[in-house]
Design a binder for these strands. Sequence first.
DNA 1: GTCTATACAGTGATAGAC
DNA 2: GTCTATCACTGTATAGAC
Lengths: 218, 218
Amino acid sequence: MAEVSAPVRAGRPKSEAKAEAILSAASELFLSQGFQGTSMDAVAKRANVSKQTVYSHFANKEELFKACIGAKVAGYGFDSAATVEDADLRGALRTIARRFVDLLLDPEVVAMHRVVMGEAASQPRIAALFFDSGPKQTKAAVCAFLEREVASGRLRIPQERVLYAAVQLLNMAIGMYQLQLLLGLRESIDEAELGPHLEQVVDDFLVLYQARDPDTKA
Amino acid sequence: MAEVSAPVRAGRPKSEAKAEAILSAASELFLSQGFQGTSMDAVAKRANVSKQTVYSHFANKEELFKACIGAKVAGYGFDSAATVEDADLRGALRTIARRFVDLLLDPEVVAMHRVVMGEAASQPRIAALFFDSGPKQTKAAVCAFLEREVASGRLRIPQERVLYAAVQLLNMAIGMYQLQLLLGLRESIDEAELGPHLEQVVDDFLVLYQARDPDTKA
DNA sequence: GTCTATACAGTGATAGAC
DNA sequence: GTCTATCACTGTATAGAC
């Protein structure tokens, strides 16, 4: 019975800090250099650990990539649409559109779109995970908001067209801005350009779907 | 000595035939495997030439990539909008929307979007070339069409909002379909789904911009 | 001009010392 | 659990024969 020294229960908690450092370093590299453009050596170096330590926490490069994307995408929720203030319909739509473009024009989100799309052919499960945790949730949140507004009589959208209208609102809001950022043609979008654009989008959306007063001829 | 002697005149159509073979092989590989996922060895093998022959025609991998994307993007013109039949406004809009989604949902075009976006961070000049020869031209063509219709009085769009309206039409038309293809969530979009969708898009666009008959109260 | 053969750095992943 | 050292392999690019 060699009652040895300390590390009888030296188990997991040590690694947690390093695991986080590895995840953080890998995320930065994957998002800026892409999956194939990032080497495990570079990840280890940036996280200030050895390469073997990386492999002790993540089975291989794909698992590490999956963990990075999963963590990032989980942090970018768009449940905002559900908690928006309903007092003013136009203001609520403006808020939804604003939050959506702010999210999609965020440099990190742009980088994630680039990486996930670029690797979608070879990593279809990552792409599916991204969609389910990202665009799908956003769409669902906006649909829920629209349905509430339809129920309360402030919007008039046929039941089968709510999803179409939600996508329409978001697509009109994003315009060509995200494409320009994705392609690196612009660094960011000026507020002076974005503000009036979103105002116009909300106007158009209301023209299409605002419930008309029944006693007013339309 | 069974000599066949056929290829005494072993063709010297110089490089042109081989250059084409190399370009074709490289394009297929780049579009399906990405830039970093494609090796010069694989290009040479698929083109049935030696690796050195590839390097004699293209200085390096980046130049080869640029040539591939440039050739592909040049072949996908969207001048169609300029030559559309104007007889019926609704039909013309439908045609434009149809050609746009047919273009963007084409598997090869989807693959090109994936590759160009994925490599946009490291190859900004490629991304710019892609934008100028692709989306920018498309947008310009639709703008030209809209301006003609405004001039002829069938559409009513403020001068400064023509570009906005063009993007709006195209964005509404594409919906979430291209994103789903980019992420590999669907293989293609069924016509039964696409047809009614485009019909609705044209309807909405006309609600927003069709010139009202002056003697009809709106 | 095209081929075979190769230089040389870098890759993902593993083995063994502490 | 973490590190150093190394594995087997592939990448781009080049040199020399025909």
